[in-house]
Design a binder for these strands. Structure first.
Length: 614
RNA sequence: CGGAGCAUAGCGCAGCUUGGUAGCGCGCCUGCCUUGGGAGCAGGAGGUCGUGGGUUCAAAUCCCGCUGCUCCGACCA
């Protein structure tokens, strides 16, 4: 850290390089490479969850800081590096109600080969709206515009927003704190939902004996090419090589075989948070890395019906999480046989549409039937005193979802985070001349503490060595949903300025109403971000009746195309060969029914979403 | 794993064709000055040019290998 460097540079006696041109400042605004917070970063976090503020927190008024007993004292001094800690658990409160995405409904109409149209658009209540200053100016110059090169944009954003760094091992990344916090948010929300549906966490080994993979034929064929092997340890060659897990069906199956004896032991409902490794040929940060983080649920049931219900239930859990927390609309459906998980009877998926029109599988849930039960001899004695194989499921969601989060909501200014997942929901920026500074920072700190105490995730940037304008751009790039500006004029008139990241709208509200209005504002942003993503998804969803039509849309329009499918692998393959799109899934509730296979013209067994995929 | 491109200071790049002293902008450090959309002035620090070999009196520069990243294709969450 620069802040730890010692003293001013010492003049050295040796012949130092000379002749550097005199430094000239460019007249234009320049970016801040590195985005380091070198010092004086006065910030603190509140509780993990975005919640309705407590009524008892009171209105923002003249209550002195020290009267808020629930917070430790925070000393704000310029150039301190201390981060106030202990604020995290300052205000314990019950879990929030996460409204289901079912609350938002959209009416769609389908045209032949045409776009799906959105007719409902929810706007949050707004107060006074001031125009965004110099709105058309491109501030974040180091981010390639999406329209120019989407891939480049993606890489630029994740690096500038400081989410990750490349690791020295090929295809591996470091999740930096700002990126890892997003994953922690996913864990928090998902874990709660898993537990609410009766699951418990456990942890299984990273290493899997080679012989385990042989027990399920499809499984071994599916994963063999991408397994890393441990062949030597402790200076000796191993008798049996160990795979670094690509997924844990096998080793968990092995354990379940020992744990399950009777129908009374069922169901087994276990989830594991873990890292897994798949040696990928082509890697992309978050989307495809050699090692990635995920959760994998593994359950065992007495009947097929129960296992199938579990499979579908977890898909619902994922849907709720992805749509209501991440504000990413998804297409739900079943994978075609060629796209299903190696070893599964059936695979279900959520497919999300990125802003370049490509698909990203957001989560999967597999009904494994008795495939693994037979491979690993997982049996139980049923009520009728007969020995039976169990029925298993597995379901997973990985850090890949962060790539979706970025590519669904991000824009040319950088990241854009939905309030429910944003590690920081509100950034407070005190503004004012030197002589007013003490007063402004004290007031802003007061505001910070009230918001934190009310359960919001808030930070303040009171650094003096960055201009307000710089900070505005900085936090927009980092995707923080709401910026709160406090300056002398605001204090004098008892107001604060709130600025939305998603629309750029400025709202000036009385400070006394902040605690009442902020939840509405955050909810509004959450809703609008989902609605915007939904509108985009529907605007880029098409229906095709022939391979030519399908191909033309994929090539020229980008997006998802719904087409009839007879069920033959060859027809699916033909689509891929024609335009590079693969079948994403067979939707549960297709927006329209198609009578004939788009490729061969035979009666269609299903309607399938096709798209180019990540 | 095939095809292409890139690798020089924290970041973005020039220098390479035609071998000979390591350069620019931003950032960083010090001081002053400033703060409602990326301010200004002055001074300063920082690079064995990805890595290993070769050619040469001499290599960032020429040649070969390796590694990593990016893009395009085949495989996948």
């Amino acid at each position: 850290m620069a802040g730890l460097r010692s003293g001013p540079p010492q003049p050295c006696g040796c012949a130092h390089r000379r002749g550097r041109a005199q430094r000239r400042r460019a007249p234009t605004i320049r970016p801040a490479p590195g985005l380091r917070q070198s010092r004086g970063w006065q910030s603190a976090r509140a509780g993990n969850r975005y919640q309705e503020p407590r009524a008892s927190a009171g209105a923002l008024g003249g209550t002195p800081i020290h009267s808020l007993r629930c917070l430790p004292q925070v000393h704000l001094q310029p150039h301190t590096r201390a981060r106030p800690s202990g604020l995290v658990s300052a205000c314990p409160r019950p879990p929030p109600d996460i409204p289901s995405s079912a609350g938002i409904r959209y009416n769609t109409r389908i045209y032949r080969g045409a776009r799906l149209a959105v007719t409902d658009w929810v706007c949050p209540p707004t107060q006074e709206v001031r125009p965004l200053a110099k709105q058309d100016k491109q501030f974040v110059k180091e981010i390639t515009p999406q329209s120019e090169d989407f891939s480049r944009w993606y890489i630029d954003v994740i690096r500038k927003a400081d989410l990750m760094d490349y690791a020295p091992v090929r295809g591996c990344i470091v999740f930096k704190p700002d990126g890892y916090e997003l994953w922690e948010g996913c864990q928090r929300e998902l874990d709660r939902r898993f537990k609410e549906t009766g699951h418990r966490n456990a942890y299984f080994p990273l290493f899997i004996p080679e012989s385990f993979f042989q027990k399920e034929k499809e499984h071994v064929e599916g994963f063999n090419p991408e397994l890393p092997w441990v062949t030597e340890a402790g200076g000796e060659k191993l008798e049996e090589r160990l795979a670094v897990r690509p997924t844990s069906e096998t080793i968990i199956g092995h354990m379940y075989a020992q744990w399950i004896q009777s129908y009374r032991d069922l169901p087994v409902l276990i989830n594991q948070w873990a890292n897994v490794v798949r040696w990928e040929k082509r890697t992309l940060p978050f989307l495809r890395t050699s090692e990635f983080l995920w959760q994998e649920g593994h359950t065992a049931h007495a009947t097929a019906e129960e296992a199938e219900a579990e499979t579908r239930q977890m898909l619902d859990v994922y849907t709720d999480f992805v749509e209501s927390v991440l504000a990413i609309p998804v297409f739900r459906g079943q994978k075609t046989p060629s796209e299903k998980f190696a070893g599964a009877v059936s695979t279900y998926s959520l497919e999300a549409m990125m802003k370049d029109g490509k698909a990203l599988q957001a989560a999967t849930s597999h009904y494994l039937g008795q495939n693994f039960a037979k491979g690993f001899d997982i049996t139980f004695v049923d009520r009728d005193n007969t020995l039976k194989h169990v029925y298993t499921t597995s379901w997973g969601l990985s850090t890949r979802i962060l790539g979706a989060l970025i590519m669904v909501h991000g824009d040319d200014r950088g990241l854009q985070l939905p309030p429910k997942i944003a590690p920081t929901q509100v950034i407070i920026i005190p503004i004012g001349p030197q002589k007013e500074r003490e007063r402004v920072v004290a007031h802003a700190t007061d505001c910070l503490k009230r918001l934190q105490c009310a359960g919001f995730r808030v930070r303040m940037d009171a650094r003096e060595d960055f201009s307000p304008g710089w900070k505005f751009n900085e936090y927009e790039m980092r995707g923080i949903p709401v910026r709160l500006e406090i300056g002398p004029r605001d204090i004098d008139s008892g107001q604060v300025v709130l600025v939305r990241r998603d629309t750029g709208e400025k709202l000036v509200i009385p400070e006394a109403q902040l605690l009442q209005q902020l939840p509405e504002l955050l909810d509004g942003i959450q809703r609008d971000m989902f609605a915007a993503a939904k509108a985009f998804q529907e605007a880029h969803s098409y229906v095709a009746h022939s391979l030519d039509e399908l191909s033309e849309i994929i090539t020229n329009q980008r997006g998802f195309v719904l087409a009839g499918w007879c069920g033959d692998d060859a027809c699916e393959r033909a689509v891929k060969d024609a335009c590079g799109a693969t079948s994403r899934n067979i939707p549960f509730d297709p927006p329209t029914r198609l009578d004939n296979c788009a490729v061969c013209g035979k009666p269609a067994a299903h309607s399938v979403w096709y798209a180019k995929a990540y």
